[in-house]
Amino acid sequence: MNPTACGLRKPFANRTQAGQALADELLGMNLTPPLVVLALPRGGVPVAAEIARALDTVQTPRQPR
């Protein structure tokens, strides 16, 4: 199925860009440390890496069961 044929589009060029956008939103929330970013494999790791980098915190990959 072609997502654009159904009127759907990707809001971000890639997962790194998505992580940066989410990180920008989280930075505006004034979160208090300690913070941990959990990453799910198969797509979530690049997103979480950008968030962890922006928040200057730890990224922990998790394997779903």
Rank of each mutant, 00 (worst) to 15 (best):
residue 9 R to T: 13
residue 17 Q to S: 03
residue 6 C to V: 04
residue 13 A to W: 00
residue 62 R to N: 00
residue 29 M to N: 01
residue 59 Q to D: 00
residue 22 L to A: 13
residue 10 K to P: 03
residue 20 Q to F: 02
residue 38 L to A: 14
residue 41 P to T: 06
residue 60 T to N: 00
residue 2 N to D: 15
residue 64 P to W: 06
residue 51 I to E: 04
residue 29 M to S: 07
residue 16 T to P: 00
residue 4 T to G: 01
residue 9 R to D: 13
residue 59 Q to A: 10
residue 35 L to V: 13
residue 56 D to F: 04
residue 20 Q to E: 15
residue 15 R to D: 05
residue 18 A to R: 04
residue 11 P to F: 02
residue 7 G to R: 04
residue 27 L to F: 02
residue 31 L to S: 03
residue 21 A to F: 06
residue 8 L to R: 02
residue 62 R to L: 15
residue 47 V to N: 07
residue 55 L to E: 01
residue 17 Q to P: 00
residue 38 L to R: 04
residue 27 L to P: 07
residue 30 N to G: 07
residue 22 L to V: 09
residue 33 P to D: 11
residue 13 A to S: 14
residue 15 R to E: 06
residue 14 N to H: 15
residue 27 L to K: 15
residue 27 L to I: 04
residue 42 R to D: 15
residue 17 Q to W: 00
residue 62 R to K: 04
residue 58 V to Y: 02
residue 8 L to I: 09
residue 17 Q to M: 10
residue 10 K to A: 14
residue 50 E to C: 13
residue 62 R to P: 00
residue 32 T to C: 07
residue 37 V to D: 08
residue 59 Q to Y: 08
residue 29 M to K: 15
residue 10 K to F: 15
residue 62 R to D: 00
residue 13 A to C: 05
residue 60 T to E: 15
residue 14 N to A: 04
residue 2 N to G: 12
residue 40 L to G: 15
residue 54 A to G: 06
residue 12 F to C: 08
residue 26 L to M: 08
residue 15 R to A: 14
residue 42 R to G: 00
residue 44 G to D: 09
residue 52 A to W: 12
residue 34 P to T: 04
residue 39 A to H: 13
residue 33 P to K: 13
residue 19 G to P: 09
residue 15 R to N: 07
residue 22 L to M: 12
residue 50 E to V: 07
residue 36 V to Q: 03
residue 52 A to Q: 07
residue 34 P to Q: 09
residue 36 V to P: 00
residue 35 L to A: 06
residue 36 V to T: 14
residue 65 R to V: 15
residue 62 R to H: 08
residue 42 R to N: 11
residue 44 G to I: 06
residue 53 R to K: 14
residue 1 M to V: 07
residue 21 A to Y: 06
residue 27 L to W: 01
residue 13 A to K: 13
residue 61 P to L: 11
residue 61 P to V: 06
residue 44 G to T: 05
residue 15 R to L: 08
residue 1 M to C: 05
residue 54 A to W: 10
residue 19 G to K: 09
residue 22 L to Y: 01
residue 21 A to P: 03
residue 22 L to G: 05
residue 31 L to K: 07
residue 12 F to G: 09
residue 63 Q to S: 06
residue 48 A to F: 06
residue 10 K to M: 14
residue 28 G to R: 11
residue 36 V to I: 11
residue 49 A to G: 03
residue 49 A to P: 00
residue 64 P to R: 13
residue 11 P to W: 02
residue 39 A to D: 03
residue 54 A to N: 02
residue 12 F to I: 05
residue 63 Q to R: 14
residue 22 L to F: 05
residue 4 T to V: 10
residue 34 P to L: 13
residue 44 G to W: 02
residue 4 T to K: 12
residue 42 R to T: 08
residue 1 M to L: 11
residue 48 A to W: 05
residue 35 L to I: 15
residue 26 L to F: 07
residue 55 L to P: 11
residue 38 L to W: 11
residue 19 G to V: 08
residue 56 D to V: 04
residue 12 F to R: 05
